[in-house]
């Protein structure tokens, strides 16, 4: 029995719509045009206990809407879902006690008070026994390394510090299922990798099931073996991350630095030339040819340095599904 089981989940929003300008605004006072937005259409998947699944897709793809339905915040228009054998949107207290949803863009901490006070309020709302609370808190504080900032007013924290506290507060009741919506948004690279490490550790230690959405491919690559690609509310791909890049990006990128300019050497015969400078060249070659090409380059040219890399996953998805991922990356 999967821990999260979703069948044909669909959510359609009705949003008011009008043209720009005064005339249209006056008209809309009396008659509102409504437009249907299919945020999520006919989505089905299941997740086993202890699995970490990454949701990928550009903004407005339906990732957050799906998470919101699974955490009971939204009623679906149609379809069904069970999480730990319960229907999320019934919002039963026993269900809510066992899940957590973290929204990277919103804060659930008390702005004017030190983080400890927010933690305490949370523990009271979830009715966490005192000794268990203390134990969990100690553990989380050590893992997240936030011992030094607990007494700091939340409004004076840096974004990274605040995010760690947000993560801490959402794990205080030891949820078995975690929905993480952009948990690393806005924080710097080192902090991103620490948060990632921590999420992985929590998953291993408590066997928690995690669904994660992110704009940063590195998050997904580091944490999720399985990914679900969503766009326009539909699932485009559901499977192993390796399979995705294997199947859809059968290329390697070879980068070389040269001792000197090699003039008219015909790189194009070896593969697609991505970069061609006097002493720096990047080639995209079919995966199978990569070793051969590398060998040829090394034997024929004064190579100073050579690397063979997978293409960035943004390109993988863009190539595979024709979605412009820059939208997602910079928004």
């Amino acid at each position: 029995m999967p821990q999260i089981d979703v069948h044909n989940l669909t959510k359609t929003f009705k949003v008011p719509e009008r043209e720009g300008g005064v005339g249209a605004a006056m008209k809309s006072l009396f008659r509102r045009k409504q437009k249907e937005v299919h945020a999520v259409s006919d989505v089905s998947f299941s997740v086993a206990q202890g699995e970490i699944v990454g949701f990928l897709g550009p903004n407005g793809a339906g990732k957050t809407t799906t998470l919101k339905m699974l955490s009971g915040l939204l009623h679906p228009t149609s379809g069904s879902a069970t999480v730990m054998d319960q229907v999320p949107w019934k919002r039963d207290a026993t269900y809510l006690r066992r899940i957590s949803m973290l929204m990277g863009q919103r804060s659930q901490l008390q702005w004017d008070l030190p983080a400890t006070d927010s933690f305490y309020v949370h523990s009271a709302i979830y009715d966490i026994p005192k000794d268990q609370y203390q134990q969990t808190l100690d553990e989380l504080v050590a893992l997240l390394d936030i011992g030094g900032i607990l007494k700091k007013q939340v409004r004076t924290m840096s974004l990274g510090e605040r995010m760690k506290c947000e993560i801490c507060v959402s794990l205080l009741h030891r949820p078995s299922v975690l929905f993480l919506d952009e948990p690393t948004i806005g924080v710097d690279i080192t902090m991103q990798s620490r948060i990632r490490q921590f999420i992985g550790e929590y998953n291993r230690k408590h066997g928690a099931t995690i669904i994660l959405t992110s704009h940063y491919m590195a998050d997904v690559v580091a944490l999720c073996k399985r990914i679900i690609v969503i766009d326009h509310g539909r699932i485009l791909f559901d499977g192993q991350l390796d399979a995705l890049s294997e199947k859809l990006a059968p290329f390697k990128v070879i980068k070389i630095d040269l001792d000197r300019d090699v003039g008219a050497y015909d790189f194009a015969a070896l593969g697609d030339v991505l970069v061609r400078e006097s002493r720096k060249v990047e080639l995209r070659v079919p995966r199978a040819n990569a070793p051969g090409v590398a060998e040829q380059l090394l034997s024929q040219l004064p190579v100073q340095d050579l690397t063979i890399e997978d293409p960035p996953i943004e390109h993988v998805i863009e190539k595979a599904f024709g979605t412009k991922l820059e939208k997602a990356v910079d928004a």
């Binding site: 915040l73 919002r91 809510l96 899940i99 919103r106 709302i125 979830y126």
Partner: peptide, 17 residues
Amino acid sequence: EGTLDFVLLRPVNAQFL
């Protein structure tokens, strides 16, 4: 602002909270 989400996530009656 949509922050009612945090109320609805809590295992306490939303109206009371």
